[in-house]
Design a protein around this nucleic acid. Structure first.
Length: 875
RNA sequence: GGAAGUUUAGCUCAGCCGGUUCAGAGCACUUGCCUUACAAGCAAGGGGUCACUGGUUCGAAUCCAGUAACUUCCACCA
């Protein structure tokens, strides 16, 4: 059989992915097996696959594939998020490009365009995930706005409203003047920026005196309704009860006194604009000040803006400063660094704004959600995120859930004007709303009288139901699927959505299933470039994932990412790491070429050495598997991968295959051959979760499997009892072989030149045949005394001699021995220091002391041997 | 302003409850090799005052306190 020397991933990947899909290997139905469930963090329909997705989904796939091979009924549910603000913005842009203004459309027309856009672009990212090898159950692909999810959201809204957990109120909210909607506190990103601090003069009414007030937002003076100073601030006590004139506007406003004011900041006097600052709003409420809103929704000045009406807020700022300056009302302007809130989605500067919004009260649900993490019903990996989580939940504020958009679940609240009052009916459908309205207010109420709320719900108000709604557990809480698949097992996500999503899913789980939505949360790190910067479009430092897959193979990229990504650690991504993955795939590929190139003989008896080699490899595999199991149990995926990597590359390729490899032209016995294939096959199973494509391919080629088989249905190997003593003996043997090779290396001898080996002391002779083969040793014999004309090496306390045909370099040999002697003596001294310390001998545990005694004996023996050797050289 | 985390080899990290020659791994590096599986490779090597200071202890990379640097999260002063 001819196999190319380089592994070519492209066609292999396409072939097997198609095969897995055809065989429906990824599909799950409830049965009597134990389920293993992961729900995907639904990427935004606007999203394009980036390195963060790659990392996150690779991790999910590793866990899912391993669980599947371990006999669990693995179900990984994919889907996308409708991302209301982001998508609506995309659609608006698309319309603009086509010359259509959103405002010229009605809701229905707009939604038609939006769905069109979604159908066209919304599935890209899921398709890209297939290239990575993601073993999602695509038959279950969901969307946060598909009928089941949509209805679930509406039901939950109604239910929470009835329970009194959802209410409508006029509050100060974060207004995004670009997207023209309110956003939640979590969607505001504070960025440090270079601002100015303007010192403005407010003249006292009827006097020629003034007070200076500092502000970063001079345009908001148009909405000023008071100036506040600290009641104990003696500088301003003369102002008590007086009124001042707002510059430019000429409005007369009172001086109020409140301890809220920081006397140290600015001039110690604060202008109060209740409509445009949360703190001012609070003070306004406290002192009954009027609230003057000076902005339109898009951030331009409204009719309260006087001569600035219609101007953009930032243009207005410039103009007003200029005007005030001309009037001599500016005392001074200072540079000032402060943090300004930006919208997460549009990056527009957030405007605090008073408006009627829907809120969900969080205090009660937060308590339960905190409890299940505190008591480890849900475990976080790494654990440190517990702190972040606790802090947020303990200081939680109500969640603003309404958005002034069209793309999303429309709030199922209906308004009805009755005798000048506005009544609110919350119902799942318009028909039900009408029925309820008629019951309450009489049959005269007609459908036209009901006006549905124009707003939609926050995207996260559908995402938080995801683990339940995916299995239709909101609408049909007792259906077989939700009972079987819920709660899910592991959630793999980035730490930046711990509040947006993780915490709220836990709340929803408690509220609607009385059970946590998952057992473990694995927080991945953030993928950065090698300079430590976040990957972003504007920096252009984000590699194209599909390009990487094409260059290194999906397996190579997966491995590269996982190798440097312990849970919670940021991942400084450098493309070259994928090379290691690619090289590894190639290494395995070539091991296959080697084994498949052997001729097999049925007559040939298995040698003892081959039997030993197999025995050792089996033991070794069992031991390493034990470690891998531990790593998976503790979500240490990079460690598990590294162990697998070394098991295959070092133990299997560098040692085992070299040990059993027949001499050129000679056949291998049947028994060894089968055992080798068996081991190889199991190694592929161990590796499969990490590198699904190359392992599937090799697994097939190894035994020329029938086409319908797949490695995915093989059992993941488990560790078994192993003989540690044998492994230790072999480690000594490895050391010996390396030592002999080292001698050859340093003496410039050819590997082809056979050497002899003499042993003084204890020696695990069971591996002698292997030593002879791998170190090219002709014979191994025991001796009693140091040998002349030989180079020596030590393994543990055993001495080995390799006679040299040519003269050996005495000086170099002496030098080497002296170095070893000095080290051994130093070591002995440190051991003696401990042993001569009475407190140590009495205080330390006996095992530790005995160990020190053994170290002492060994060191002494070694020193003696070294001295004897040196003496032989005449030193 | 508050909190958390990190600091170990050139890079990325592992070192659990203090004690094995404990100072490790992978990559990178050096030297020698195209040895008929693999140069995307083989063999053999070099490399670290465990951030700093002090303390606890017979014994500290590991525990405690302080300092410094970096990172993240939360809050926010106009």
């Amino acid at each position: 059989m001819e196999i190319a020397p380089h592994y070519a991933p492209a066609e292999v990947e396409e072939k097997w992915y198609k095969f897995w899909l055809e065989k429906k290997i990824f599909h799950s139905e409830p049965d009597n097996r134990r389920p293993y469930v992961v729900v995907i963090p639904p990427p935004n329909v606007t999203g394009v696959l980036h390195m963060g997705h790659m990392l996150n989904n690779t991790i999910q796939d590793v866990l899912v594939r391993r669980a599947r091979m371990m006999g669990r009924n693995a179900c990984w549910v994919p889907g996308t998020d409708h991302a209301s603000i982001a998508t609506e913005a995309k659609v608006v842009n698309m319309l603009k490009e086509r010359g259509i203004d959103k405002r010229s459309l009605d809701r229905e027309e707009f939604m038609k365009y939006a769905w069109e856009w979604k159908e066209e672009h919304g599935g890209i990212i899921l398709k890209q995930l297939r290239r990575l090898g993601a073993s999602c159950d695509w038959d279950r692909t969901a969307f946060t706005m598909d009928p089941i999810r949509y209805e679930s959201v509406i039901r939950v809204f109604c239910d929470l409203y009835r329970k009194g957990l959802i209410y409508r109120g006029v509050r100060m909210v974060n207004w995004d003047p670009k997207a023209l909607t309110a956003v939640s506190d979590e969607e505001v990103i504070y960025k440090e920026s270079q601002s100015k601090l303007y010192y403005l003069r407010y003249f006292v009414e009827g006097e020629d005196k003034y007070i200076v007030v500092a502000t970063t937002r001079p345009e908001t003076i148009l909405g000023d309704t008071a100036v506040c100073v600290h009641p104990e601030d003696e500088r301003y006590s003369w102002l008590k009860g007086k009124k001042v004139i707002v510059p430019s506007v000429g409005r007369v406003v009172p001086i109020i006194m409140d301890e809220y004011v920081d006397r140290e900041f600015g001039t110690g006097a604060l202008k109060i604009t209740p409509a445009h600052d949360i703190n001012d709003y609070n003070l306004g409420m406290k002192y009954g000040l009027p609230s003057i809103d000076i902005f339109n929704d898009n951030g331009t000045l409204n009719s309260e803006g006087g001569k600035y009406v219609g101007m953009d807020r930032f243009a207005c700022r410039k103009q007003i400063v200029k005007d005030l300056d001309e009037q001599g009302l500016i005392e001074k302007i200072e540079d000032y660094v402060n943090k300004v809130g930006h919208s997460e989605r549009t990056d527009a500067v957030i405007e605090p704004k008073l408006s009627a919004q829907w809120f969900m009260s969080m205090t009660e649900v937060a308590k339960k959600a905190l409890e299940v993490v505190e008591d480890d019903t849900i475990q976080f990996h790494p654990e440190k995120f517990k702190n972040t989580y606790r802090h947020w939940l303990e200081n939680i504020k109500d969640w603003c859930i309404s958005r002034q958009l069209w793309w999303g679940q429309r709030i199922p609240a209906y308004y009805l004007d009755i005798e000048g009052r506005q009544e609110t009916i919350v119902a799942e459908t318009a028909e039900e709303a009408l029925r309820l309205a008629q019951e309450k207010f009489g049959s005269t109420v007609k459908a036209e009288d009901l006006r549905q709320d124009e707003d939609v719900l926050d995207t996260w108000f559908s995402s938080w139901l995801w683990p339940i709604s995916l299995f239709d557990g909101i609408r049909n809480p007792d259906n077989e699927e939700i009972k079987y698949y819920y709660p899910t097992d592991d959630l793999i996500t980035a730490p930046d959505i711990i509040f947006f999503w993780v915490a709220r899913m836990i709340m929803a789980g408690e509220e609607y299933r009385k059970e946590v939505p998952f057992r473990h949360v694995y927080f991945t790190g953030i993928v950065r470039d090698k300079l430590g910067r976040k990957m972003s479009k504007s920096l252009g430092n984000s590699p194209d994932p599909i390009g990487l897959i094409e260059k290194y193979g999906a397996d190579g990229v997966r491995m590269g990412m996982l190798l440097t990504a312990p849970a919670g650690n940021d991942l400084p991504f450098d493309e070259s790491i994928c090379e290691q993955g690619r090289n590894f795939a190639n290494k395995i590929w070539n091991a296959l070429r080697l084994v498949k190139g052997w001729t097999v003989s049925d007559e040939l008896q298995q040698s003892d050495d081959n039997a030993k080699s197999i025995q050792w490899m089996e033991q070794r595999m069992a031991a390493v598997l034990e470690g891998i199991e531990y790593d998976f149990d503790h979500y240490r995926l990079s460690e598990a991968l590294m162990k697998s990597y070394k098991l295959v590359w070092d133990d299997f390729c560098s040692w085992f295959l070299e040990m059993v490899k027949p001499a050129y032209g000679s056949p291998v016995d049947r028994e060894t051959y089968s055992a080798t294939l068996g081991i190889f096959e199991r190694l592929m199973c161990i590796l499969h979760p990490f590198m699904p494509f190359v392992t599937e391919e090799i697994w097939h080629l190894l035994k020329e499997r029938c086409e319908s088989a797949t490695i995915m249905l093989q059992h993941y190997p488990m560790s078994v009892f192993y003989d540690q003593r044998m492994l230790d003996d072999f480690d000594r043997t490895r050391e010996l072989i390396a030592g002999v090779r080292g001698i050859r290396n340093s003496k410039g001898l050819s590997p082809k030149e056979s050497l002899d080996l003499y042993v003084k002391g204890q020696h695990p002779s069971q591996f002698d045949g292997i030593v002879m083969k791998l170190a090219n040793v002709g014979k191994i014999e025991a001796v009693e005394e140091k040998m002349d004309g030989a180079v020596s090496l030590m393994v543990g306390t055993t001495e080995y001699y390799v006679p040299m045909s040519s003269n050996i370099d005495v000086a170099a040999e002496v030098e080497k021995l002296k170095g070893e002697l000095a080290y051994a003596e130093g070591f002995l001294a440190s051991v003696m220091k401990k042993l001569s310390n009475e407190k140590f001998v009495n205080g330390a545990p006996e095992a530790v002391v005995n160990n020190e005694r053994k170290k002492k004996a060994d060191a002494e023996q070694k020193i003696e041997a070294l001295k004897a050797q040196l003496k032989a050289f005449g030193c």
